[in-house]
Nucleic acid binder design. Structure first.
Lengths: 209, 209
DNA sequence: GCCTACCCCAAACCTATGTATGGGGCCGCC
DNA sequence: GGCGGCCCCATACATAGGTTTGGGGTAGGC
């Protein structure tokens, strides 16, 4: 939609650690294989800065000044921010690990870890983020089409995708069949569906998951 | 289908631990709230015994004689056995926890744990198993219907659910339109679909996720 | 050789769907 | 008051979908 003049299709890794040495080490590790990197000493700083257009992930120390890494993860997902998270921790603890993983962390690395472990985790996380972005893209296009429907059209769409015939829909809504046909045609046009099968799948994607 | 004369709609918990004291303790804990329990001293024993019709889950010590709990989990999922797993471990280790959780474990409890933690985990696991069984049920019914289709009918179904018109399908397959209609009718009947929308959803469920 | 399952097709007929033309009514906004 | 969006409906016509009746062909199994 916009002119794609931005010169950074590079993945971005956000690093949060209170130890400057670790920030530097990770930063150069990630840059060495072509990722962009932003580093932060605490969780709060991330919120002020981030959210680019490119696939990205968050590498997060569990123990942080202020909000802990785990709490920050919770905050993010409650705010609807679904960036993949990789945890690091210096002092292991199973409940902590379980909590992080249950909340959807991609990995949980005990320090010290080998560079390759971290790179694998980041690579997985970025791949996950690419997929998520792709899915989000279509889903939001769908929703924006669906938003252009009038209330009646939405009702008709619901019943059409439930498998009812025009006649039955007309009965259900107290309309004449011809009116249903018109709404139905509008729905197909506005939703940009080229077949009923299309429309059913769109309805599934809108309602489901 | 079968006469439901079996008297056990009770959930079942399978416990695997090499320590007899722990087996006994967990057994009476689970029985006290109405679950059926089977205990095993090693992973190999489970395979010989199990697999009932009721919601169930596996409570597994990580360190076991012979195959480790984690390896056993891997074996199970490779064999297509998707029973929810809860791990226990006496000596914590983050990589171990991560591996278990990544492989889909419901929880990972460090010994000693409180009874309530275990009960919560089991309750979650059983609920998960109930859902899985319900999904598996419809999915396998679908697949068994789909298996009764002839090769041609399968092809036609694929194109129909892709949204093509009979005419286009006929062209695609080098048939006359009337033949397509007949196959299509057979598909609807055999798949027990009452509308095209139905059929599309079935196709999604068969192929997708 | 016969039976069955699968595959193909046609004519006839009915129903469902889609679209266009041409109406009318209500409401909110400029 | 006029305009636009939404809602409703009818007639008419064209196309798509679905079933029945009645064919014909091949391949495999008993």
């Amino acid at each position: 939609m916009k002119p794609a003049t931005t010169t950074a299709p590079n993945p971005l890794v956000l690093v949060v650690d209170d130890d400057a040495d670790i920030r530097d080490a990770l930063s150069s590790l990630f840059r060495s294989i072509g990722y962009d990197v932003k580093v932060f000493p605490s969780a709060a700083d991330v919120l002020t800065a981030s959210l680019p257009e490119t696939p990205s992930c968050l590498v997060l120390d569990v123990r942080l000044p202020g909000v802990s890494g785990l709490d920050f993860q919770t905050q993010l997902s409650r705010s609807g921010i679904n960036i993949p998270v990789i945890f690091m921790t210096g002092y292991g603890d199973i409940p902590m690990t379980v909590r992080g993983m249950k909340a959807g962390a991609v990995d949980f690395l005990a320090k010290p870890f080998r560079d390759q472990e971290m790179l694998d985790a980041v690579s997985t996380a970025l791949e996950k983020d690419r997929e998520r972005r792709a899915l989000d893209g279509v889903a939001s296009a769908l929703r924006s089409n669906h938003d252009t429907l009038t209330p009646r059209e939405r009702e008709v769409m619901a019943l059409v995708t439930k498998g009812l015939m025009n006649k039955q829909i007309a009965g259900e809504l107290g309309l004449s069949e011809i009116t249903v046909k018109i709404h139905r045609g509008n729905v197909m046009r506005k939703m940009n569906a080229r077949s009923l099968a299309d429309l059913v799948r769109m309805a599934e994607a809108l309602a489901g998951r």
